[in-house]
């Protein structure tokens, strides 16, 4: 028996070692981005490279924030505006639809679910040209609206399918009881179901935001005016002009992902929950 515990201890030690090793490999690119953003441009090209910035410098950040190539504050503001409006739009529409699909007898329910499932798998390029023409003809081209509507189509199918599993997991008796007490379906939805499924609702909001914030292709295609560009389009356009100004590019990257990292720190539980609920049960 003593031998068995000893063996177990050794294998646990190796397991931990392998775990830490894999972890280090996985996050090394992130580490490298962070450290590079704090290096001076000349230090990037040292060989062998510095694994830790020996002369840490904010040069890349100050250069980036004061650059006249792309106004990064404006870009962040545009991103925030587009993502927040998309988030509210996509999450509200999908929470309502998910409730309808989970609680009512709907003709063609299977077809509707199938449509949402399929639209989650569509390649974005399939709607790019037609939406470009549609937005042009209804005057939405080159407005935030174009990005918002396009980005919402990413969040809606995901959130509908994911939220539906949340609503399905709540026992029917709960809102039946509310209905017997005289609530309308909408009242029981707002007062009973939404609070019970608040976790899922948080997931819907977080993912709708993330989808919109990460988008490049829609905003790149539908917005021509650089003062309306979200930060992803800004960084894409700026990178060509940097050439090999890597520390500045990494600083730009860091600024871009900062809002995402903050959301991740506070909403991590919901992000992991949403990923699993949305994909496995989809």
């Amino acid at each position: 028996m003593a031998n068995y515990t000893k063996q177990k201890k050794i294998s646990a030690f190796f397991l931990n070692l392998v775990a830490i090793l894999l972890f280090v490999v996985m996050i090394f690119p992130l580490y490298w981005m962070i450290t590079a953003s704090f290096k001076k441009e000349v230090d990037i090209f040292l060989s062998p490279p510095q694994f830790f910035p020996v002369n840490p410098s904010l040069q890349a950040y100050t250069a980036q924030l004061t650059s006249n190539v792309f106004d990064i504050f404006q870009g962040l503001g545009n991103s925030m505006f587009i993502s927040c409006v998309t988030m509210v739009l996509a999450a509200s529409l999908s929470i309502l639809a998910a409730y309808g699909l989970a609680r009512f007898r709907i003709h063609g329910k299977k077809v509707i679910l199938l449509l949402f499932l399929i639209s989650q798998m569509l390649p974005q390029v399939a709607t790019l040209v037609p939406n470009f023409l549609i937005f042009k003809s209804i005057g939405l081209y080159n407005t935030y609206g174009a990005s918002i509507f396009a980005d919402a189509t990413l969040g809606i199918p995901f959130c509908v399918l994911m939220m539906r599993t949340y609503f399905l997991s709540v026992s029917k008796e709960i809102d039946e009881a509310a209905r017997i007490d005289g609530c309308t379906s909408f009242q029981s939805f707002v007062r009973i179901m939404l609070p019970i499924c608040s976790g899922g609702i948080a997931v819907s909001f977080v993912f709708s935001f993330l989808f919109a914030y990460s988008d490049l292709i829609y905003s790149l295609t539908y917005i021509n005016d650089s003062t309306k560009w979200p930060v992803t389009v800004g960084i894409y356009n700026a990178i060509g002009r940097y050439g090999t100004a890597w520390s500045q590019a990494m600083a730009f990257g860091m600024i871009t992902i900062l809002p995402i990292l903050l959301i991740f720190i506070f909403m991590q539980k919901y992000i992991i929950e949403g990923l699993t609920a949305g994909s496995v049960k989809g």
Partner: peptide, 28 residues
Amino acid sequence: KVLKGDRVGYFYILPALLFMFLFIFFPV
């Protein structure tokens, strides 16, 4: 057992479906 007033259900689904129709299915 299905709750009463099932037709109400369509109103919950309609906005999202209409939206997806306009910006996904019609474009496709």
